[in-house]
Design a protein around this nucleic acid. Structure first.
Lengths: 253, 253
DNA sequence: TGTCCTCACTTGTCTTCACAAGATGACTAT
DNA sequence: ATAGTCATCTTGTGAAGACAAGTGAGGACA
C-alpha cells in the first residue's frame, strides 16, 4: 500500500528489487530477504511481493527457492524489440555511430518470392529499399527490404539517408509487432562485394527478416547481409526455458 | 480442487487450456471463456485459473484482455534446451536421421584461447573432440568441442560414434544448465573443406557455444560449422518481449 | 562424537473477498 | 436517427488467511 504513483504496486516492487540486485544491495549469490520481511518492509500483502519476485525469476535475476529464499543473480537482459530490429538503435546501444547510404528506393511490382513471403498477389505493388549500413563510417551491412505498399509509401515522404526507418514508421503508427529472423551464411555476390568492399565469394552473415503486425499481417520482408567482422548474433538458453537474445559487435581477434 | 494427481492445480489447468487451444476447441482468434466461467467449470478459485492463463500468455497463446477475455492464438513454441543443444535430438525432432564420424578425441593441455573461455589456467587438462555430424548420412556440420576435464573424461568410457554425447552427459548427471551461442559466418579452411566436401573459402555458418553449469562454471567450449544449405537458426521477437528460438533445416530453394 | 528428531521458518499453493478500470450493449434523451 | 448515459459484464490489482512441503538449526539421545 505504498504511496501510489498510479503504476501497479507489484511493478514498483519489481523495479525496486531489480535495482537492489543490480546495485549490489542484495549481493549476487546470496539469499534475498524472505517474503514476510519484504511484506513488512513495504507494508503489503504477499500477493504483490510474489508477483514481483516471479517477474525477476522469469528474467533470471532470482534462482532457487522452495523452503528457503531465492538467491540473487545478475543477469544480462534480452535486447528489446527495438534494439534488435533497428540498426540505428542497435548501433547506439553498443556505442557506435550508425550511418547509411541509400542505394535505391523504388515502387515495384512484387516478385513471386517476395509476394509469397508477404502474402500478396504476384505483381502487387511494393516498395523496395536497398541501403548500405555503416558503423562509425565503415561499411557493415547491406540491407535489402521489401515493404508492403501501405507501409512503404511512407518512405517517399522521408529521406532514408537521415536516420532510422523503424523510428519513422513508429511515428506513423505502423503496427510493428513481431519479427522472425532467419540466420544463415551466404557467399558474397558481385553486387554485395562491390558495396561492402570485399571479394566475390567472401562469407557473409545473412539475416532474413519477416516483420508482421500484431494481427500477423506481413509488413516487411528483408535480407540483411553483415560483414562477419562487424556483427554477431547470440542466443542464450537455459534448461528452464529462459531465453536471452542479442546482436553484438564482433570481438576483435 | 479437481481430483488431485499431486501436480499443482494451475499446471493441470494450464495444460488443459493449451490442449483446448491447440485442438481448436477454443478457436484461434476467438475470445476464450471468462475467468468466472472457468472457475465454475473446474470448481476452483480465480488464483489457479489466472496463473494458468498467465502461463499461456507468456508463451504467446493468449493475447489481449483487460475488460474482455483474452483471445486464443496458436503459437510456435520455443525449442527446448535439449533440442537446441543436442544435434542428435534436433535431427530427430525435424524427422532426420542423425549420424556422426568421430575424427579425434584426445586429452590435451588447454590452448590459451580455450583456457580463457573455460576459465582455466593455461595448460590445464581438457578433452578435445572433433566430429563430423551427418543428417540422413550427408555431411552437415563439423563440431569441435573442448570439454573441461572433469566432464570430458566421461568421453573415454563412451563411444562418440554411437550417439548423443549430450544424453550421455545427462546420464552421468553432469549439470548442463546454460548455453550461450554466438553465431557468425566464416570461410571454410582446408580442414573444414575436406571433411565437409566443399571448396576452401566457401561460406560456413559458425556457432560458437559456451555451456555452463547452474553455478555458471564453464563446462564446454565448442565451435560448430554448418553447411548453410543444411541448417538455419531463427529468432522470433515481439514488442512485448516474448522470444522464440529455433534451429531448422534450411529450406530448399 | 555422531545420529536422529523436533521445531521454527520459508516458499508453494489455494481460497475468499473486495474494489478499480476497461468494454459492451441496452436504454434514454435529443 | 444519433449521441450520451448507465448497468453489467470483464480483467487487473490487492488483502488476508490457511495449509502443505522443503530447509536448516538446535537439542536429545545413543
Amino acid at each position: 500500500m505504498k504511496t501510489s504513483e498510479d503504476t501497479p504496486l507489484h511493478q514498483r516492487l519489481g523495479a525496486e528489487f531489480l535495482r537492489r540486485i543490480e546495485s549490489g544491495e542484495w549481493p549476487e549469490g546470496r539469499p534475498v530477504p524472505s517474503e514476510s520481511q519484504l511484506c513488512a518492509e513495504f507494508g503489503t500483502s504477499r500477493g504483490p511481493v510474489r508477483q514481483a519476485l516471479a517477474l525477476l525469476r522469469s528474467e533470471g535475476n532470482l534462482v532457487g527457492g522452495r523452503g528457503k529464499p531465492p538467491v540473487a543473480r545478475r543477469a544480462t537482459p534480452s535486447q528489446p524489440f527495438a534494439t534488435f530490429l533497428s540498426f540505428t538503435q542497435w548501433a547506439r546501444t553498443i556505442g557506435r555511430e550508425p550511418g547509411q547510404t541509400t542505394i535505391e528506393v523504388a515502387r515495384r511490382r512484387a516478385s513471386p518470392e517476395a509476394a509469397a513471403r508477404l502474402g500478396l498477389a504476384e505483381g502487387a505493388p511494393v516498395v523496395e529499399l536497398v541501403r548500405l549500413r555503416l558503423l562509425d563510417g565503415v561499411p557493415a551491412m547491406l540491407e535489402r527490404s521489401t515493404f508492403v505498399y501501405e507501409v512503404g509509401r511512407y518512405l517517399f515522404d522521408f529521406d532514408p539517408d537521415t536516420g532510422s526507418i523503424y523510428e519513422e514508421l513508429l511515428r506513423r503508427e505502423v503496427d510493428l509487432h513481431h519479427a522472425r529472423h532467419t540466420i544463415d551464411a551466404v557467399a558474397a555476390q558481385q553486387h554485395d562485394a562491390e558495396l561492402l568492399q570485399i571479394a566475390v565469394g567472401d562469407p557473409l552473415l545473412r539475416v532474413r527478416r519477416l516483420t508482421t503486425s500484431s494481427q500477423g499481417e506481413p509488413l516487411e520482408d528483408a535480407d540483411d547481409r553483415y560483414l562477419p567482422a562487424m556483427a554477431t548474433f547470440t542466443i542464450e538458453n537455459t534448461i528452464e526455458g529462459r531465453t536471452v537474445i542479442g546482436r553484438y559487435r564482433s570481438e576483435e581477434d
